[in-house]
């Protein structure tokens, strides 16, 4: 079987939300001595890129995204034991959670899935997380990024407390915020480094935070990202 056929099967299985087919195609990767890392990038991740597109075009919604991510992970689970160890190094560490007072975690879970797929090392603190826990864990892990989410107006102020406490504790983690009631203006006011409107945007913003260039708080279009990449190339 051609390498490109296997990659196509991986991509299509993710788009079709089919975990069984994704695992089968991943097994074919191993069977045919194809590079498992390449299979993830050229097969599974490509599928997820396409899924992001479908999400942005309002053809896919949250339930579809969750199942596509499951299919992708089913494929990765098969390939993981065959990955060379060094492909995992230098991942940026991200601590993520829903701020105390709120237990809506669907948005947080989506962001976690998307960042995980994009190559970040995710540490999920769950929902209804006390302020101090964000600070403690971020300090302990020397996290690169702390992601705070809330869906409720009543818990928004907790975000500011956490950002201030991180600074007081001398922790250098960047902070990205998001969730229903959060606006870019609010994010800026409380001293957040990034704001994301939804999960696909969170990936763009998070990636942007770790490029050595200025990233605007609002990134609405994929074009902006490519513009940024262009600038980076010039430097």
């Amino acid at each position: 079987m051609e390498k490109s056929d296997i990659f196509c099967r991986l991509t299509q299985a993710v788009i079709d939300m089919d975990a069984t087919r994704a695992a089968e195609a991943a097994a074919a990767v191993i069977q045919h001595n194809v590079d498992p890392y390449e299979a993830i990038i050229e097969g599974l991740a490509k599928g997820m890129d396409k899924v992001n597109e479908l999400f942005e075009n309002e053809e896919y919604f949250v339930p579809e995204i969750l199942l596509c991510a499951d299919a992708m992970n089913a494929g990765i689970d098969v390939l993981r034991p065959y990955l060379p160890k060094e492909t995992t190094w230098n991942k940026k560490k991200v601590v993520i959670g829903v701020v105390k007072g709120d237990t809506h975690d669907i948005g947080k879970n989506l962001v976690k899935i998307m960042l995980d797929n994009a190559g970040f090392e995710m540490h999920d603190l769950g929902r209804n997380v006390p302020y101090a826990k964000f600070v403690d864990i971020a300090g302990e892990l020397k996290a690169d990024l702390v992601c705070l989410s809330t869906l409720m107006t009543t818990t928004m102020d907790g975000m500011q407390v956490i950002i201030e406490d991180l600074k007081k504790a001398g922790i250098a983690s960047r902070v990205m915020v998001g969730g229903g009631p959060i606006s870019p203006g609010f994010a800026k006011n409380i001293g957040a480094d990034g704001y994301a409107k939804n999960a696909t945007e969170a990936v763009k913003v998070a990636k942007g935070l770790f490029q050595e260039i200025h990233v605007p708080l609002i990134l609405k279009t994929p074009e902006l990202v490519s513009v940024r990449r262009g600038q980076e190339g010039v430097r």
Binding site: V62, P63, E64, L66, L67, D70, H104, D105, I106, N109
Partner: peptide, 16 residues
């Protein structure tokens, strides 16, 4: 329903 079962579980079940 999302207060009785984890939302991600429920949303996947909508399709499955």
């Amino acid at each position: 329903a999302t207060s009785l079962v984890e939302a991600t579980v429920l949303f996947k079940a909508l399709k499955q």
